Simulated scan of single mutants.
Amino acid sequence: MRKNKVLLVEDDSTLSFIIEDALVREGFDVITASDGEDGLRKFGTDGPDIVVADVMMPKLDGFSMVKLIRAQSPAVPVLFLTARTSIDDLLHGFELGANDYIRKPFQIAELLVRIKALLRRNATLKEQRILTVGDCMLDLASQKLRVGDAQYGLSHIEALILDELFNHTNEVVEARALMFRIWQNDDYNNLNRIHGFIYKLRKYLTSSRNIDILNVRGIGYKLSVKA
């Protein structure tokens, strides 16, 4: 049976060794890199199933590395390890294509749980069908949205939100339901993140003839589909 392959990009050699040892014990194949440039190179040569990366690294930081990774692969899960705590930093990472964050210091057990959850979720997405609503088509596997003749690459979170809305057309989808699907919690601090992703999705849909995302004040959002 093929093992899942993890690309671990971490410049702290002690932490990298600890994480690598834990992952190997859990049955993963692990490729390590000590900076963003090496991580980007090994991503291209080794084809990992998931990327676990520090944010602050020499040569090429984690954000810049993941932006370049996303140009090659829109779907591979990315989990950031970070000491940063500001909402702006977190939003920036998610906009670039991060799937999850874990703040330093952390428990190895929590890291393992999050890695396994991301891999399961990604496997499920690959099995899901293409969704068509009005003049729009969402391909979850490739995280692509087609609006008429235009095509957009989505972040993982944007794709999840749109999938939820496409599956509940003309119905109210609670913001807390979106937060649970994305982060497995309804932490109030995540509400502004949801707003940010909705804002960007609305921009993609401006050229649609019959679809719009409406705010339902104090509750959530509705994908309005006109005949």
Rank of each mutant, 00 (worst) to 15 (best):
C136G: 05
E127Q: 13
K222S: 13
D89W: 10
F166N: 04
A150I: 13
G196L: 09
P105G: 07
F63Y: 14
W183E: 02
A117G: 07
I161R: 00
R70F: 09
G93T: 00
G62I: 02
D35F: 02
G44E: 11
F80H: 05
H92S: 11
D11S: 09
L162W: 01
E20I: 10
L15G: 03
N190I: 08
I31Q: 00
L154P: 00
L7T: 00
K3P: 02
G134S: 08
D49N: 08
N189T: 11
D163L: 05
D46K: 00
G44I: 07
R121C: 06
L131C: 09
D29Q: 07
K67R: 14
Y204F: 15
D54C: 08
E20R: 15
D46Q: 02
L201C: 08
N192Y: 11
T14K: 14
R202M: 09
N170D: 15
V216P: 11
F63D: 01
R70H: 11
K42Q: 01
A227N: 12
L125E: 13
K104L: 05
K144N: 14
N122P: 04
A150Q: 15
I87S: 14
R181H: 04
K200T: 04
I213A: 06
T85H: 04
N167S: 14
A150D: 11
N170C: 12
L162I: 07
D12I: 06
T32E: 03
T206Q: 12
R209H: 10
Q72E: 15
F17L: 11
I69R: 01
A53D: 01
I31S: 01
H195N: 15
V147T: 07
T169Q: 11
L7C: 05
G39W: 00
R114A: 00
M56S: 13
K104S: 07
M56Y: 07
E37W: 06
L131V: 13
E37Y: 03
I161A: 02
S73P: 00
L178A: 03
F106E: 02
N189E: 14
N170F: 14
G47M: 14
E26F: 06
L81Q: 04
E95L: 07
R202F: 04
I108G: 00
T132D: 14
I87R: 15
L205C: 04
R121M: 08
G220V: 03
T124E: 15
Q184I: 13
V66W: 01
N170R: 05
N185E: 12
G36W: 00
G44A: 11
G97R: 00
R176N: 15
F28P: 02
D89G: 13
G218V: 15
V113G: 03
V6A: 01
L160F: 06
Q151T: 15
T32M: 02
D38S: 06
T45C: 02
V147W: 07
G62A: 08
S13V: 12
K67S: 06
R41I: 06
S34P: 03
K126F: 13
